[in-house]
Design a protein around this nucleic acid. Structure first.
Lengths: 336, 336
DNA sequence: CTGTTAGCGCCTTCAA
DNA sequence: TTGAAGGCGCTAACAG
């Protein structure tokens, strides 16, 4: 327990009380450098008595670092929604663990991709030692521009040879193909894709899906553009079914999209999987809990988070890195 | 677009280039103090040319602040799970918006409530200007200890007169009572509560629920202790049903708990709401999307987040604040 | 083993 | 209107 005896705001206060120099206090408290064990113990005891701790901000300034890593989600609007998206939440949680395991704080800041300088501004403000971008959205150009002169940055998202930055992500194209094959194998003939293709990840899922379809089914496949938000995708799905469409196989761009489609379908008496099979993407925790349990293309979010942090730490240390792609896996449950 | 001409790392570099003093550069870039408009424009132009921005960390050190607010989740184990819990995620997202609207960064740090000094350590390390705790867990004693000498802190959670700190939260007792009345009104006679009572919020929900039950039903009510994680609560529910229990009305401590119960029930052929009515708590976004759509006691998470930030800002400004309690609202959908 | 000194990058009186 | 100087709280040579 801490009993405050007198206000000790800095190591110089403590040095005065202990009758030593500030550097001795610094050495005692950081454990760096050499110091007589007894003086070290004595100073630490005094610090404890006064409830004193080194000011991390000042320490970092002096050390030329911040001790924090910025985790940024480059999405234009719907900020709240984006941050509370289950996939991002799970990614965020795993990033938080991996980062704090290595002694880094997580800094979440408002960064709306508006104007070409949003990322540059953040970088130059010097608030973090590195940056993890979760999703590249449509900001590939901006990212390449930054990557040319800013090293400590990694990106979760689709790999592309023309990217100058390091990405970690799944083979979305292969994942889309898995979904297509599974639906085909179930005998589905009237297919639909629920999602958009503005971000490279989603575009690849869609492309992989379509490319694995026979020509006639591909041409008949409905491409239903939906928002990433639960409300948005549910509304789109509702409108789609209301217009009379009755696919027997659906591939959604994300699990949340799939859950939304199933909820909308229920309103029209469409049963899943009897009348319509639905496959999601991600395998978030909720995929197993939803009714019916979701068949989905799994991305290992935790492994991805750990890889992102690993690569970022290497880049912060000046080491060059290469992009990695995880193989997705089809998890068959009940929805398809 | 930024064209890097020569490395400008500090205002002194810029001062040299511009042929002025550092203080002039500081005044030009911060906009504070008086300065000839033309010199200000000139210096700003040079700064832009070199892609220079003031170092926020140094700025903050000098100003005696950090520009960041710590958002802490005091839960012992299961860190990843806790951070990705949908309720926390939604709260977090709204906090992020409110905080960044006021120019604050969000700092998420590992803070495991181990030992009595976890919060004190965080506070004294000086990494943030204030703290928002999401949930008080069983740390009331620690919080009171800190509150006695640390002002800029607010807590999401249950109100209690003996708390020295400011809380924002719902009237959990009233919420529990609402759930009880609704189940009673539906004619449920074999009731069960899924949750634990270690945190004051949950204890109040349980107490409110039980106190609104007639004596005989209260005594027959099953109290099923479940973890907060989806996996944990699902496993507990599974075991409970497997033991042969067949309640016709369930009140779960959270929406995620309710969804887990419904998933487990499905495995035993228990239909919701026909065989068993289920009420959740929170009204997370997913409550409406789950099958069947969840009847639940709604907390306005966004309003709560805004209130937390408002109160915190007042406390950071030295103003005294009072705890607030929101009235919960029963949202009737299909599960009960 | 410990003290002195010089900053990290910035802001802010106080003078000129 | 601008510059010089001191210092936010800390660390790391360099001496002694």
């Amino acid at each position: 327990m801490t009993s405050v005896i007198s206000p000790v705001r800095s190591i110089s206060d403590l040095a005065r009380i202990a009758g030593v120099s500030v550097s001795t206090v610094s050495r005692a408290l950081t454990g760096k450098g050499t110091l007589n064990q007894s003086t070290r113990d004595r100073i630490r005891a005094i610090a404890d008595d006064h409830g004193f701790r080194l000011n991390v901000a000042a320490q970092n300034l002096r050390l030329g670092r911040t001790g924090a890593v910025g985790v940024l989600l480059p999405l234009g609007h719907e900020r709240a929604q984006a941050l509370s998206d289950p996939f991002f939440s799970e990614m965020f949680a795993h990033l938080a663990n991996a980062l704090t395991d290595h002694g880094y704080d997580l800094l979440v800041s408002r960064v709306l991709p508006q104007g070409p300088a949003w990322l540059d501004d953040f970088v130059r403000s010097g608030r973090t030692d590195g940056i993890i971008l979760v999703g590249q959205s449509d900001q590939g150009t901006v990212l390449n521009h930054i990557a040319a002169h800013y090293r400590p940055m990694v990106v979760w998202g689709a790999y592309a040879p023309e990217n100058l930055y390091t990405t970690v992500g799944s083979d979305n194209h292969a994942g889309g193909a898995m979904a297509a094959k599974h639906l085909l194998q179930r005998g589905c003939r009237r297919l639909a894709w629920f999602g958009h293709a503005r971000a490279p990840e989603f575009a690849a899922r869609q492309a992989g899906f379509l490319s694995s379809l026979p020509d006639d089914l591909r041409q008949a496949c409905d491409l239903v553009p939906v928002h990433i938000t639960p409300e948005g995708s549910r509304a789109s799905a509702h409108a789609y079914f209301e217009a009379g469409h009755r696919p027997d196989g659906v591939f959604a761009a994300s699990d949340i999209g799939a859950i939304s489609v199933i909820a909308a379908a229920a309103e029209f008496g469409i049963r899943v999987p009897e009348d319509m099979a639905v496959i999601g993407f991600d395998d978030i925790v909720l995929a197993r809990l939803s009714r019916p349990p979701l068949t989905t293309v799994r991305q290992d979010i935790e492994a991805g988070a750990r890889m992102l942090v690993d690569l970022l730490r290497r880049r912060m240390a000046g080491v060059e890195t290469q992009s990695v792609q995880f193989a997705p896996k089809l998890i068959v449950r009940e929805s398809a």
